[in-house]
Design a binder for these strands. Structure first.
Lengths: 350, 350
DNA sequence: TTGGCAATCTGTAACGTTTCAGTATATTGC
DNA sequence: GCAATATACTGAAACGTTACAGATTGCCAA
């Protein structure tokens, strides 16, 4: 048996969710007219339009998503594609909140599409496109030559990337200016007299790894400091790995007196490694670190900190996808977030 | 004009997504038969069934979600309802990952439904129920008398709560045994000779606030220690507030020599406040803290730590909702996670 | 032979929406 | 005064799925 009420079309029982048919019955109009009136179609009389919209508001009419989706193919869904194991935690929720904030004022729902263990990052994208499960997609962990971005461009589905690509293709993105971050960080360290600097890099292969490395190198030559290579780990490595490798590095004769770190959690490991080697932050070494939540200064007040706002990133990304869906030019939906100043929480004379 | 191909029903062009009609054409059967065959209905011949399923797999048939949803009312969606501003960050992403993990092997999608600024927590629930946007719901920040749980029970939508309620109503939940956590924490502190203990509580009003407070009180009388009241802040307060209030507390004549803290971020503030007052962790005070990601020991090795696994919570919650949707008894879908042992990272003789 | 029945399979309708191709009525041009 | 036209509205069809109520076939008992 059908799971719904058996009397077909009982407009009197107010219990069921109102549909266009309900509205048509109440206003004495046809469903077509009601449908058009609700979306302000020009061929509907002004008064009729107002009347329909009034009644719709009164009885709390909400278009049935399945109906719309089946008929039009529009899902009213934005998908955020996440790597289940690599994404650093706190930053994910900030992005989600940022995206939500923007979608809240729209008919769009946010669905989280995970991809896990050494799976092809293209898999979830293919799934979304093939099943038509979303009108727009947001991806992160963007690479210079990103198969996912290319695929989505080819298939004409609007998307935005967290981080830029470098394939000569134009698409919406939001990025933090990691080049500028690295430059400012090096300048700051140099200004404190640090001359032998090491960089704890972003994950190799991601676009912002290159940005950061380049900014670091550019600034090194600008200030005339030298680099102590530290490429055995990145912020994607485990806390333990970073810690032990750092300790090894710091026990060598030629060791850095300054670090630039691209993530807060990695910085914790970095400091631990430094202290394992018997050295002291603020005396033997200084560190400039990015962070996304305001906690690092509690960890060690000697840390020099630059904030990266992932909530903002989420909002920008959502706005970009919506803009593209809305017909804006992809090239006009790109934004770059400039790092704020380097923050110090402890006077150097303390 | 229709946005789709104009020739109606061209089974030859392999470009469009296959539907039941496509399968019916290819197998020479009727759509009804195909539909039934795919779901292993008994009145379909065994060979036909195999044949249909083979073809379906070959051409990569996937049921159209909108079609199913419109016809059956089933959305194949689970909604995770989140407070956009209060939820501690890292823990949210862990839950999401946990939920995703379980949903990955099912046809279910995960949608994140946020509610923000001093909004009624019931609003998003009402929205979900009224618009029929999900087959199941997961909520957190559960209260002893939780309007959301009551509402969902009344409206017959399956859900699971992160944390228990106390209304005499039965529903699926997953909870961490915070009573046991507080008990173990107090015992540990007492075992180290700490006699004047303070509790940095969970947010007042949430169920696990009560559990924690009770466990703390029970253990205090068990070990014969006394409580130093510290109820001006909870882990929901800002880092700065916790820090200053802690410093104030620690400057008083009668001050705690041991703390139990319900969250990692709050513990950072706690330690900062203690050190602001010129006291030293491990010497003047000891702290047992919960954490959800494995970082606190890097912050201060003197910290005593109990892990809470939010990823597990997410998985359990997802399993519970799916179980309820699948017809299991709500009472059989409740789980309690017992705290592991208190972890120490620095020998007391160090 | 015929009636009954089990085993398979099928057509139709409906879920709620939008688009297409109208229809009916009033208005204008000449 | 009459055709042409603009204005306001409407029914039918379709998107892909499932439930219901048949339809067809073969087989067996009487």
């Amino acid at each position: 048996m059908d799971r719904r009420r058996t009397e077909k079309n009982d407009e009197t029982s107010a219990k069921e969710r109102p549909t266009l048919k309900t509205l048509a019955f109440m206003t004495g109009l046809g469903v077509t007219t009601v449908s058009r009136a609700l979306k302000d179609a020009p061929e509907i009389g002004a008064e009729t339009r107002r009347r329909v919209q009034l009644v719709a508001k009164q009885i709390g009419y909400r278009p049935n998503r399945a109906g719309v989706r089946l008929r039009t193919g529009r899902t009213n869904v934005i998908s955020l594609v996440l790597n289940t194991e690599r994404e650093i935690m706190s930053f994910v929720s900030d992005i989600i909140y940022g995206v939500s904030e923007v979608l809240a004022d729209t008919p769009y729902h946010l669905i989280v599409t995970p991809y896990s263990r050494s799976q092809d990052p293209l898999d979830p994208i293919r799934y979304l496109v093939e099943t038509g499960s979303a009108d727009g997609v947001i991806i992160s962990r963007t690479q210079p030559n990103d198969a996912r971005a290319r695929y989505m461009l080819e298939h004409g589905i609007p998307f935005a990337t967290h981080g830029r690509t470098d394939m000569g293709l134009v698409h919406p993105y939001h990025d933090f200016d990691n080049h500028a971050f690295a430059v400012e960080a090096v300048r700051r360290l140099a200004g404190m007299g640090r001359r032998k600097l090491a960089l704890l890099t972003p994950p190799v292969g991601l676009t912002y790894h290159g940005h950061t490395v380049n900014g670091f190198a550019d600034a090194l030559s600008e200030v005339g400091a030298t680099e102590i290579p530290f490429s055995t780990v990145s912020i994607d490595h485990s806390i333990e790995q970073i810690r032990t490798r750092t300790a090894q590095l710091m026990r060598r004769d030629v060791r850095p007196d300054g670090f630039v770190s691209s993530a807060a959690a990695a910085t914790l490991a970095l400091v631990a490694g430094i202290e394992d080697a018997g050295l002291k932050l603020g005396r033997d070494v200084d560190i400039v670190s990015k962070q996304s939540s305001d906690l690092l200064h509690l960890f060690r007040p000697e840390l020099l900190i630059v904030n990266e706002n992932f909530r903002l990133a989420g909002s920008e990304l959502a706005r970009s996808v919506l803009g593209w869906i809305g017909g804006a030019a992809p090239g006009s939906l790109q934004s770059l977030s400039v790092p704020g100043e380097v923050l110090a929480y402890k006077r150097s004379t303390d």
